[in-house]
C-alpha cells in the first residue's frame, strides 16, 4: 500500500503502537520528519522515546502502525520489509545511549566496522586477501581518515577507545555513524553524561554534520538545552502519547509540556 506521500518528508510514522504485555509504551503516535531538518523528540523518563526509535530501527516490531521512509533514490520503503541488520543499507543509522564502541581495537578499526556495508568482496577475496579486498580496504581507510580529520579526531586514529575521554568517545561514535554514509541519523540521548562545554561542542558537531554530509538528524533527548539549541522541529511525548509538536518555542510554551515536565500547574 503506497501512502499519500509528501515529498518534503524523509520519514513518516503512522499510528505507531507498541505494547509490552499490556503496557502501552507507545500509544498511537504519528509524525513526519522533513528532509534536512534536525528533529528533536523529547519527553520525561519512560515516555516511550527509546521504544519509538527502536521501532524505526527494527530492534522492536511495533504492535501496530507503519513506518515509511524515502531512500536515496527517492523510493518510499515500508520498513516492515526490513530486518534490523538491513536498516543500515537504507541509510538510517543510530547511535547508542551507552556508547557501543569496541574498546580494544583502534579508533580507525572502529570506523571500519561502521563501513561494513561498503565491502562487497566475498569470503574468497577476504580470506586470500586479494587485490580486490586490498583496494576496498584502502578506500574505506581513506574515507575513515577523512571523516576523522573533519571531526578533529585524527590524533586518536591509532589509539584504543578504552581510556579516552567520554566527550571524545561520543564524537568517535558520530564518526563511525558517518562511515555508513547515512541519510537519517538517529541519536539516542547524545548529551547524557556530558558537561555543558562538551554539550555545546556536541551541538556544534551535529550542525556541522548536517551541513557537510546533508543528513537529516533525529535527536532523542532528555537534555532540554541541547534540543532547544539545535532543533528545527521538536516533538514532545509523555506516556507514549503526543503532547505537542512545532518549533522549539511553541513546544516550550505549550501548557501540556510544562505540566509533564514541571508537574501539575499551580503546584509551584
Amino acid at each position: 500500500m503506497e501512502p499519500a506521500w509528501n515529498d518534503k518528508h524523509i520519514i513518516s510514522l503512522r499510528n505507531i503502537k507498541m505494547y509490552f504485555q499490556g503496557i502501552k509504551a507507545v500509544d498511537d503516535l504519528s509524525f513526519d520528519i522533513n528532509e534536512g531538518e534536525i528533529f528533536g523528540l523529547i519527553g520525561p523518563n519512560g515516555a516511550g522515546k527509546s521504544t519509538l526509535f527502536n521501532c524505526i530501527t527494527r530492534f522492536y516490531k511495533p504492535t501496530e502502525g507503519k513506518v515509511y521512509y524515502k531512500d536515496g533514490q527517492g523510493k518510499v520503503l515500508d520498513l516492515d520489509d526490513y530486518k534490523a541488520h538491513d536498516i543500515a543499507k537504507t541509510g538510517i543509522m543510530r547511535t547508542f545511549q551507552n556508547l557501543e564502541l569496541v574498546l580494544y581495537v583502534s579508533v580507525l578499526e572502529n570506523l571500519l566496522i561502521g563501513g561494513h556495508i561498503y565491502y562487497n568482496s566475498g569470503l574468497f577475496h577476504q580470506f586470500l586477501r586479494t587485490k580486490k579486498i586490498k583496494n576496498e580496504e584502502a578506500q574505506n581507510k581513506a574515507r575513515a581518515e577523512e571523516i576523522l580529520e573533519k571531526l578533529n579526531l585524527i590524533q586518536y586514529k591509532g589509539m584504543f577507545p578504552a581510556g579516552l575521554p567520554y566527550g571524545v568517545l561520543k564524537k568517535i561514535e558520530l564518526a563511525r555513524v558517518l562511515m555508513t554514509k547515512p541519510r537519517l541519523i538517529i541519536l539516542d540521548e547524545p548529551a547524557a553524561g556530558l558537561n555543558d562545554a562538551e554539550t555545546e561542542e556536541l551541538a556544534e558537531t551535529i550542525r556541522q554534520i548536517r551541513k557537510e554530509y546533508n543528513c537529516t538528524i533525529f535527536l532523542v533527548e532528555h537534555d532540554m538545552n541541547l534540543v532547544m539549541g539545535v532543533c528545527d522541529t521538536v516533538c514532545a511525548i509523555s506516556f507514549g502519547k503526543m503532547l505537542a509538536i512545532g518549533t522549539p518555542e511553541e513546544v516550550q510554551n505549550s501548557p501540556l509540556v510544562q505540566e509533564a515536565y514541571l508537574g501539575e500547574k499551580g503546584d509551584d
Partner: peptide
C-alpha cells in the same frame, strides 16, 4: 562486543 551494535551497523 555488542549484538545491538552489530545489527545497527548492518552486520548479519
Amino acid at each position: 562486543s555488542s549484538e545491538s551494535l552489530a545489527k545497527a551497523m548492518g552486520i548479519n
